[in-house]
Design a protein around this nucleic acid. Structure first.
Lengths: 143, 143
DNA sequence: TGTTTAAATTAGCATCAACTAACCGCAAAG
DNA sequence: CTTTGCGGTTAGTTGATGCTAATTTAAACA
Protein backbone atom coordinates (compact mmCIF):
# COMPACT_ATOMS: atom_id res chain seq x y z
CA UNK A 1 0.00 0.00 0.00
CA UNK A 2 2.05 2.93 -1.33
CA UNK A 3 1.56 6.05 0.73
CA UNK A 4 0.46 9.39 -0.66
CA UNK A 5 3.78 11.07 -0.11
CA UNK A 6 7.15 11.35 -1.67
CA UNK A 7 8.54 10.51 1.72
CA UNK A 8 7.21 11.83 4.96
CA UNK A 9 10.48 13.53 5.78
CA UNK A 10 10.72 15.08 2.32
CA UNK A 11 7.30 16.64 2.72
CA UNK A 12 8.48 18.09 5.97
CA UNK A 13 11.64 19.56 4.54
CA UNK A 14 9.87 21.00 1.53
CA UNK A 15 7.19 22.52 3.72
CA UNK A 16 9.86 24.10 5.93
CA UNK A 17 11.62 25.54 2.91
CA UNK A 18 8.37 27.10 1.77
CA UNK A 19 7.66 28.54 5.21
CA UNK A 20 11.15 29.99 5.43
CA UNK A 21 10.91 31.36 1.89
CA UNK A 22 7.73 33.17 2.81
CA UNK A 23 9.48 35.38 5.31
CA UNK A 24 13.17 35.37 4.44
CA UNK A 25 15.06 36.55 1.38
CA UNK A 26 17.02 33.33 1.14
CA UNK A 27 16.94 29.88 2.65
CA UNK A 28 20.03 27.94 3.63
CA UNK A 29 20.57 24.44 4.95
CA UNK A 30 21.39 25.83 8.37
CA UNK A 31 18.11 27.74 8.54
CA UNK A 32 16.22 24.52 8.00
CA UNK A 33 18.30 22.76 10.62
CA UNK A 34 17.49 25.50 13.12
CA UNK A 35 13.82 25.53 12.28
CA UNK A 36 13.40 21.78 12.57
CA UNK A 37 15.92 21.20 15.36
CA UNK A 38 17.91 18.75 13.24
CA UNK A 39 21.67 18.51 12.89
CA UNK A 40 23.45 20.07 9.94
CA UNK A 41 24.43 16.72 8.47
CA UNK A 42 20.87 15.46 8.60
CA UNK A 43 19.68 18.45 6.62
CA UNK A 44 22.66 18.28 4.28
CA UNK A 45 21.90 14.70 3.39
CA UNK A 46 18.21 15.45 2.99
CA UNK A 47 18.96 18.41 0.69
CA UNK A 48 21.19 16.22 -1.42
CA UNK A 49 18.34 13.79 -1.88
CA UNK A 50 15.85 16.54 -2.68
CA UNK A 51 18.30 17.99 -5.18
CA UNK A 52 18.71 14.60 -6.85
CA UNK A 53 14.95 14.17 -6.95
CA UNK A 54 14.55 17.56 -8.61
CA UNK A 55 12.61 19.07 -5.74
CA UNK A 56 15.01 21.92 -5.03
CA UNK A 57 17.97 23.72 -6.58
CA UNK A 58 20.92 24.99 -4.62
CA UNK A 59 23.06 27.82 -5.97
CA UNK A 60 26.76 28.38 -5.37
CA UNK A 61 25.95 30.34 -2.19
CA UNK A 62 24.07 27.41 -0.75
CA UNK A 63 20.77 29.23 -1.23
CA UNK A 64 17.92 26.82 -1.68
CA UNK A 65 15.02 27.28 -4.08
CA UNK A 66 12.01 25.04 -4.62
CA UNK A 67 11.52 23.73 -8.13
CA UNK A 68 8.03 23.57 -9.58
CA UNK A 69 7.68 19.97 -8.40
CA UNK A 70 9.00 20.80 -4.98
CA UNK A 71 6.73 23.81 -4.70
CA UNK A 72 3.71 21.68 -5.53
CA UNK A 73 4.42 19.29 -2.68
CA UNK A 74 5.39 22.09 -0.32
CA UNK A 75 2.20 24.02 -0.98
CA UNK A 76 0.10 20.90 -0.61
CA UNK A 77 1.67 20.01 2.69
CA UNK A 78 1.53 23.54 4.00
CA UNK A 79 -2.11 23.81 3.05
CA UNK A 80 -2.83 20.69 5.08
CA UNK A 81 -0.88 22.16 7.93
CA UNK A 82 -2.93 25.35 7.93
CA UNK A 83 -6.27 23.62 7.62
CA UNK A 84 -5.58 21.01 10.27
CA UNK A 85 -4.15 23.52 12.69
CA UNK A 86 -7.17 25.76 12.36
CA UNK A 87 -9.67 22.95 12.65
CA UNK A 88 -7.99 21.76 15.83
CA UNK A 89 -7.98 25.26 17.25
CA UNK A 90 -11.68 25.52 16.43
CA UNK A 91 -12.20 22.31 18.40
CA UNK A 92 -10.56 23.93 21.40
CA UNK A 93 -7.00 22.66 21.13
CA UNK A 94 -4.34 25.15 22.20
CA UNK A 95 -2.57 26.87 19.33
CA UNK A 96 0.76 25.31 20.21
CA UNK A 97 -0.47 21.74 20.44
CA UNK A 98 -2.61 22.21 17.34
CA UNK A 99 0.47 23.18 15.36
CA UNK A 100 2.51 20.31 16.75
CA UNK A 101 -0.13 17.72 15.99
CA UNK A 102 -0.87 19.18 12.57
CA UNK A 103 2.79 18.58 11.74
CA UNK A 104 2.29 14.88 12.21
CA UNK A 105 -1.26 14.48 10.97
CA UNK A 106 -0.57 16.29 7.71
CA UNK A 107 1.63 13.44 6.55
CA UNK A 108 -0.80 10.59 7.06
CA UNK A 109 -4.04 11.83 5.50
CA UNK A 110 -5.45 10.36 2.33
CA UNK A 111 -6.51 12.93 -0.28
CA UNK A 112 -10.13 11.98 0.34
CA UNK A 113 -9.95 12.59 4.06
CA UNK A 114 -8.12 15.87 3.64
CA UNK A 115 -10.69 17.03 1.14
CA UNK A 116 -13.50 16.37 3.62
CA UNK A 117 -11.63 18.10 6.43
CA UNK A 118 -11.00 21.09 4.21
CA UNK A 119 -14.69 21.20 3.29
CA UNK A 120 -15.55 21.20 6.96
CA UNK A 121 -13.06 23.95 7.65
CA UNK A 122 -14.27 26.18 4.84
CA UNK A 123 -17.90 25.52 5.74
CA UNK A 124 -17.33 26.74 9.27
CA UNK A 125 -15.55 29.86 7.98
CA UNK A 126 -17.93 30.81 5.19
CA UNK A 127 -15.27 29.85 2.66
CA UNK A 128 -12.99 32.62 3.87
CA UNK A 129 -9.40 31.85 4.79
CA UNK A 130 -6.71 34.52 4.54
CA UNK A 131 -4.06 31.93 5.35
CA UNK A 132 -5.01 29.66 2.48
CA UNK A 133 -5.18 32.68 0.21
CA UNK A 134 -1.65 33.61 1.23
CA UNK A 135 -0.41 30.22 0.09
CA UNK A 136 -2.00 30.36 -3.33
CA UNK A 137 -0.87 33.95 -3.74
CA UNK A 138 2.71 33.14 -2.90
CA UNK A 139 5.12 33.04 -5.79
CA UNK A 140 8.76 32.44 -5.11
CA UNK A 141 10.96 35.27 -6.42
CA UNK A 142 13.12 34.03 -9.23
CA UNK A 143 16.90 34.47 -8.73
CA UNK B 1 10.51 15.46 21.72
CA UNK B 2 9.34 12.12 23.14
CA UNK B 3 6.13 10.95 21.59
CA UNK B 4 3.05 9.87 23.50
CA UNK B 5 3.41 6.19 22.67
CA UNK B 6 5.26 3.16 23.72
CA UNK B 7 6.17 2.69 20.11
CA UNK B 8 3.87 3.28 17.23
CA UNK B 9 4.12 -0.31 16.08
CA UNK B 10 3.49 -1.64 19.59
CA UNK B 11 0.28 0.34 19.83
CA UNK B 12 -0.77 -1.17 16.58
CA UNK B 13 -0.05 -4.70 17.61
CA UNK B 14 -1.74 -4.30 20.97
CA UNK B 15 -4.80 -2.75 19.34
CA UNK B 16 -5.00 -5.64 16.89
CA UNK B 17 -4.77 -8.15 19.72
CA UNK B 18 -7.65 -6.43 21.47
CA UNK B 19 -9.76 -6.35 18.30
CA UNK B 20 -9.11 -10.02 17.67
CA UNK B 21 -9.80 -10.88 21.31
CA UNK B 22 -13.16 -9.20 21.06
CA UNK B 23 -14.42 -11.65 18.49
CA UNK B 24 -12.31 -14.74 18.78
CA UNK B 25 -11.81 -17.25 21.57
CA UNK B 26 -8.05 -17.08 21.25
CA UNK B 27 -5.46 -14.96 19.48
CA UNK B 28 -2.36 -16.38 17.86
CA UNK B 29 0.62 -14.77 16.16
CA UNK B 30 -0.64 -15.89 12.79
CA UNK B 31 -4.00 -14.20 13.32
CA UNK B 32 -2.26 -10.91 13.91
CA UNK B 33 -0.10 -11.42 10.83
CA UNK B 34 -3.19 -12.04 8.74
CA UNK B 35 -5.06 -9.08 10.15
CA UNK B 36 -2.22 -6.63 9.65
CA UNK B 37 -0.84 -8.12 6.44
CA UNK B 38 2.59 -8.59 7.99
CA UNK B 39 4.84 -11.59 7.69
CA UNK B 40 4.87 -14.18 10.44
CA UNK B 41 8.45 -13.43 11.46
CA UNK B 42 7.68 -9.74 11.84
CA UNK B 43 4.84 -10.55 14.20
CA UNK B 44 6.89 -13.17 16.01
CA UNK B 45 9.63 -10.67 16.75
CA UNK B 46 7.14 -8.02 17.78
CA UNK B 47 5.41 -10.45 20.15
CA UNK B 48 8.74 -11.30 21.70
CA UNK B 49 9.31 -7.63 22.37
CA UNK B 50 5.84 -7.12 23.80
CA UNK B 51 6.33 -10.17 26.01
CA UNK B 52 9.62 -8.78 27.29
CA UNK B 53 7.97 -5.44 27.94
CA UNK B 54 5.22 -7.11 29.92
CA UNK B 55 2.47 -6.11 27.53
CA UNK B 56 1.29 -9.60 26.70
CA UNK B 57 1.64 -13.16 27.91
CA UNK B 58 1.86 -16.15 25.63
CA UNK B 59 0.87 -19.60 26.85
CA UNK B 60 2.29 -22.92 25.72
CA UNK B 61 -0.24 -23.09 22.89
CA UNK B 62 0.96 -19.78 21.52
CA UNK B 63 -2.26 -18.11 22.65
CA UNK B 64 -1.74 -14.45 23.34
CA UNK B 65 -3.30 -12.52 26.20
CA UNK B 66 -2.97 -8.83 27.01
CA UNK B 67 -1.61 -7.97 30.43
CA UNK B 68 -3.14 -5.13 32.39
CA UNK B 69 -0.54 -2.72 30.98
CA UNK B 70 -1.05 -4.02 27.47
CA UNK B 71 -4.79 -3.78 27.82
CA UNK B 72 -4.56 -0.17 28.90
CA UNK B 73 -2.64 0.79 25.79
CA UNK B 74 -4.79 -1.38 23.55
CA UNK B 75 -8.02 0.13 24.84
CA UNK B 76 -6.66 3.63 24.55
CA UNK B 77 -5.56 3.10 20.98
CA UNK B 78 -8.75 1.33 20.00
CA UNK B 79 -10.81 4.11 21.50
CA UNK B 80 -8.95 6.61 19.35
CA UNK B 81 -9.53 4.39 16.37
CA UNK B 82 -13.27 4.28 16.94
CA UNK B 83 -13.63 7.98 17.59
CA UNK B 84 -11.50 9.09 14.66
CA UNK B 85 -13.15 6.68 12.26
CA UNK B 86 -16.59 7.89 13.23
CA UNK B 87 -15.68 11.54 13.08
CA UNK B 88 -14.27 11.08 9.60
CA UNK B 89 -17.35 9.21 8.48
CA UNK B 90 -19.48 12.04 9.85
CA UNK B 91 -17.41 14.43 7.73
CA UNK B 92 -18.29 12.42 4.64
CA UNK B 93 -15.26 10.19 4.29
CA UNK B 94 -16.01 6.67 3.04
CA UNK B 95 -16.02 4.04 5.76
CA UNK B 96 -13.05 2.23 4.25
CA UNK B 97 -10.82 5.28 3.94
CA UNK B 98 -11.92 6.53 7.35
CA UNK B 99 -10.73 3.28 8.92
CA UNK B 100 -7.47 3.33 7.01
CA UNK B 101 -6.67 6.90 7.95
CA UNK B 102 -7.76 6.43 11.55
CA UNK B 103 -5.14 3.67 11.77
CA UNK B 104 -2.44 6.21 11.08
CA UNK B 105 -3.87 9.26 12.81
CA UNK B 106 -4.50 7.42 16.07
CA UNK B 107 -0.76 7.10 16.64
CA UNK B 108 0.18 10.73 16.28
CA UNK B 109 -2.38 12.59 18.38
CA UNK B 110 -1.48 14.33 21.61
CA UNK B 111 -3.78 13.56 24.55
CA UNK B 112 -5.08 17.11 24.40
CA UNK B 113 -6.04 16.92 20.76
CA UNK B 114 -7.68 13.56 21.15
CA UNK B 115 -9.68 14.82 24.10
CA UNK B 116 -11.03 17.69 22.01
CA UNK B 117 -11.86 15.40 19.10
CA UNK B 118 -13.65 13.03 21.43
CA UNK B 119 -15.64 15.92 22.90
CA UNK B 120 -16.63 16.92 19.40
CA UNK B 121 -17.63 13.37 18.57
CA UNK B 122 -19.71 12.90 21.70
CA UNK B 123 -21.31 16.31 21.28
CA UNK B 124 -22.51 15.44 17.82
CA UNK B 125 -23.91 12.12 19.06
CA UNK B 126 -25.57 13.32 22.24
CA UNK B 127 -22.95 11.48 24.27
CA UNK B 128 -24.17 8.14 22.95
CA UNK B 129 -21.69 5.69 21.48
CA UNK B 130 -22.37 1.97 21.55
CA UNK B 131 -18.92 1.32 20.14
CA UNK B 132 -17.14 3.15 22.94
CA UNK B 133 -19.39 1.41 25.45
CA UNK B 134 -18.36 -1.92 24.00
CA UNK B 135 -14.72 -1.12 24.68
CA UNK B 136 -15.20 -0.15 28.28
CA UNK B 137 -17.48 -3.14 28.81
CA UNK B 138 -14.97 -5.54 27.40
CA UNK B 139 -13.13 -7.66 29.89
CA UNK B 140 -10.79 -10.29 28.64
CA UNK B 141 -11.67 -13.79 29.90
CA UNK B 142 -8.98 -15.05 32.18
CA UNK B 143 -7.41 -18.38 31.16
C1' DT C 1 5.85 -44.99 12.10
C1' DG C 2 6.87 -41.86 9.00
C1' DT C 3 5.42 -37.97 6.08
C1' DT C 4 3.23 -33.76 5.58
C1' DT C 5 1.83 -29.41 7.04
C1' DA C 6 1.18 -25.24 9.97
C1' DA C 7 2.95 -22.17 13.33
C1' DA C 8 6.70 -20.10 15.36
C1' DT C 9 11.31 -18.79 15.54
C1' DT C 10 16.10 -17.45 14.29
C1' DA C 11 19.28 -15.16 11.48
C1' DG C 12 20.36 -11.94 8.33
C1' DC C 13 19.14 -7.98 5.52
C1' DA C 14 16.99 -3.46 3.75
C1' DT C 15 15.20 1.11 4.31
C1' DC C 16 14.40 5.40 6.50
C1' DA C 17 15.73 9.09 9.06
C1' DA C 18 17.89 10.77 12.64
C1' DC C 19 22.77 11.30 15.05
C1' DT C 20 28.17 12.36 16.03
C1' DA C 21 32.84 13.02 14.64
C1' DA C 22 35.79 14.90 11.66
C1' DC C 23 37.05 17.54 7.85
C1' DC C 24 36.89 21.29 3.98
C1' DG C 25 36.64 26.04 2.19
C1' DC C 26 36.20 30.53 2.64
C1' DA C 27 35.69 35.19 4.50
C1' DA C 28 36.33 38.45 7.99
C1' DA C 29 39.35 39.89 12.06
C1' DG C 30 43.43 40.68 13.77
C1' DC D 1 49.20 36.61 6.24
C1' DT D 2 47.38 33.67 9.63
C1' DT D 3 43.74 32.46 12.60
C1' DT D 4 39.01 31.79 13.71
C1' DG D 5 34.44 30.50 12.89
C1' DC D 6 30.56 29.31 10.10
C1' DG D 7 28.25 26.71 6.70
C1' DG D 8 28.46 22.53 4.44
C1' DT D 9 29.84 17.78 3.55
C1' DT D 10 31.43 12.86 4.18
C1' DA D 11 31.61 8.79 6.70
C1' DG D 12 29.97 5.92 9.86
C1' DT D 13 26.38 4.74 13.64
C1' DT D 14 21.93 3.93 15.62
C1' DG D 15 17.16 2.56 16.21
C1' DA D 16 12.66 1.43 14.40
C1' DT D 17 10.30 -1.59 11.58
C1' DG D 18 9.56 -4.15 7.98
C1' DC D 19 11.28 -8.32 4.85
C1' DT D 20 13.01 -13.33 3.12
C1' DA D 21 15.11 -17.77 3.84
C1' DA D 22 15.75 -21.45 6.52
C1' DT D 23 15.06 -24.03 10.76
C1' DT D 24 12.44 -26.02 14.68
C1' DT D 25 8.32 -27.76 16.83
C1' DA D 26 4.35 -30.12 16.99
C1' DA D 27 0.10 -31.78 15.53
C1' DA D 28 -2.45 -34.57 11.98
C1' DC D 29 -2.86 -38.23 8.79
C1' DA D 30 -2.70 -42.06 6.55
Amino acid sequence: MKAYETHESSENYLESILMLSMDHQVVRSIDIANMLGFSKPSVSVAMKRLREEGMITVDSNGYITLTEDGMKIAKGTYEKHIVITNVLIDLGVSAYTAGQDACRIEHVLSPETFARIKDFYLRSHDGVSPELDAISAYEQRKP
